[in-house]
Simulated scan of single mutants.
Amino acid sequence: MPDLFIGLMSGTSVDSIDAVLVDFGDEEKITPHILAALAHPIHARLRESILGLCAPGPSELDRAGQLDRQLGQIFAEATNTLLARAGVKGDSITAIGSHGQTVRHRPPGTVTSPFTLQLGDPNTISALTGICTVADFRRRDIALGGQGAPLMPAFHQAAFRTDRSRAVVNIGGMANITELTASGQVYGYDTGPGNALLDYWVDLHRNQPYDRDGAWGASGRAIPELLNRLLSAPYFAAEPPKSTGRETFNPSWLEQACIGLELAPADVQATLAEVTAASIAEAVRAFADGGELLTCGGGAKNKDLIARLQRRLPTWSITDTGTYGIDADWLEAVGFAWLARQTLRGLPGNCPGVTGAQKEAVLGAIYPP
Rank of each mutant, 00 (worst) to 15 (best):
residue 60 E to D: 09
residue 216 W to R: 09
residue 297 G to I: 00
residue 74 I to C: 10
residue 242 K to P: 02
residue 129 T to C: 03
residue 87 G to A: 02
residue 279 S to W: 02
residue 151 L to V: 00
residue 294 L to S: 05
residue 195 N to M: 06
residue 146 G to W: 02
residue 358 Q to L: 04
residue 210 Y to E: 00
residue 156 H to S: 05
residue 143 A to R: 07
residue 197 L to H: 08
residue 42 I to K: 09
residue 286 A to I: 00
residue 60 E to I: 07
residue 194 G to H: 05
residue 43 H to F: 05
residue 82 L to N: 05
residue 54 C to F: 01
residue 305 L to F: 04
residue 330 W to Q: 06
residue 304 D to P: 04
residue 314 P to R: 11
residue 204 L to D: 02
residue 352 P to M: 06
residue 240 P to E: 03
residue 161 R to N: 14
residue 263 L to M: 14
residue 84 A to Q: 12
residue 268 V to E: 05
residue 264 A to W: 13
residue 251 P to G: 09
residue 22 V to M: 10
residue 221 R to W: 11
residue 117 L to H: 13
residue 166 R to Y: 09
residue 153 P to L: 00
residue 293 L to H: 02
residue 224 P to Q: 09
residue 176 N to E: 06
residue 130 G to P: 03
residue 323 T to A: 13
residue 156 H to M: 01
residue 339 L to C: 01
residue 41 P to E: 08
residue 212 R to L: 11
residue 105 H to F: 07
residue 365 A to K: 12
residue 218 A to H: 11
residue 19 A to I: 03
residue 171 I to E: 02
residue 266 A to W: 13
residue 259 I to T: 06
residue 29 K to S: 14
residue 209 P to V: 04
residue 341 R to I: 07
residue 157 Q to C: 05
residue 231 L to T: 06
residue 36 A to S: 11
residue 247 E to I: 03
residue 34 I to D: 05
residue 241 P to L: 07
residue 298 G to H: 01
residue 359 K to L: 09
residue 19 A to M: 00
residue 327 D to H: 15
residue 187 Y to S: 11
residue 237 A to Q: 10
residue 348 P to D: 13
residue 64 A to F: 03
residue 22 V to I: 14
residue 285 R to E: 12
residue 97 G to E: 10
residue 14 V to D: 08
residue 107 P to E: 07
residue 214 G to A: 06
residue 221 R to M: 07
residue 290 G to K: 08
residue 328 A to T: 01
residue 116 T to K: 11
residue 90 G to A: 12
residue 209 P to W: 08
residue 62 D to I: 09
residue 326 I to S: 11
residue 189 Y to R: 03
residue 61 L to G: 09
residue 65 G to P: 04
residue 347 L to H: 15
residue 358 Q to W: 12
residue 43 H to L: 08
residue 15 D to G: 04
residue 17 I to D: 00
residue 214 G to L: 00
residue 11 G to Y: 01
residue 119 L to Q: 02
residue 136 D to E: 14
residue 352 P to E: 12
residue 328 A to R: 11
residue 293 L to G: 07
residue 266 A to D: 15
residue 121 D to S: 08
residue 89 K to H: 15
residue 107 P to N: 05
residue 347 L to D: 15
residue 331 L to A: 03
residue 324 Y to S: 14
residue 176 N to Q: 01
residue 295 T to D: 05
residue 227 L to K: 00
residue 135 A to P: 00
residue 331 L to F: 04
residue 135 A to H: 11
residue 144 L to M: 05
residue 139 R to F: 09
residue 212 R to A: 08
residue 317 S to N: 14
residue 238 A to R: 15
residue 71 L to D: 03
residue 149 A to V: 01
residue 94 T to A: 15
residue 191 T to G: 09
residue 121 D to F: 02
residue 349 G to L: 06
residue 64 A to W: 12
residue 70 Q to D: 13
residue 223 I to R: 11
residue 76 A to C: 06
residue 46 L to T: 15
residue 26 D to N: 15
residue 86 A to N: 09
residue 239 E to T: 13
residue 73 Q to W: 14
residue 349 G to P: 10
residue 205 H to K: 07
residue 8 L to V: 10
residue 277 A to Y: 07
residue 127 A to H: 04
residue 219 S to M: 02
residue 347 L to A: 15
residue 83 L to K: 03
residue 360 E to T: 11
residue 63 R to P: 02
residue 185 Q to T: 04
residue 208 Q to D: 12
residue 363 L to Q: 13
residue 31 T to P: 10
residue 263 L to H: 13
residue 126 S to R: 01
residue 289 D to V: 14
residue 63 R to Y: 10
residue 193 P to T: 00
residue 76 A to T: 06
residue 22 V to Q: 13
residue 155 F to G: 06
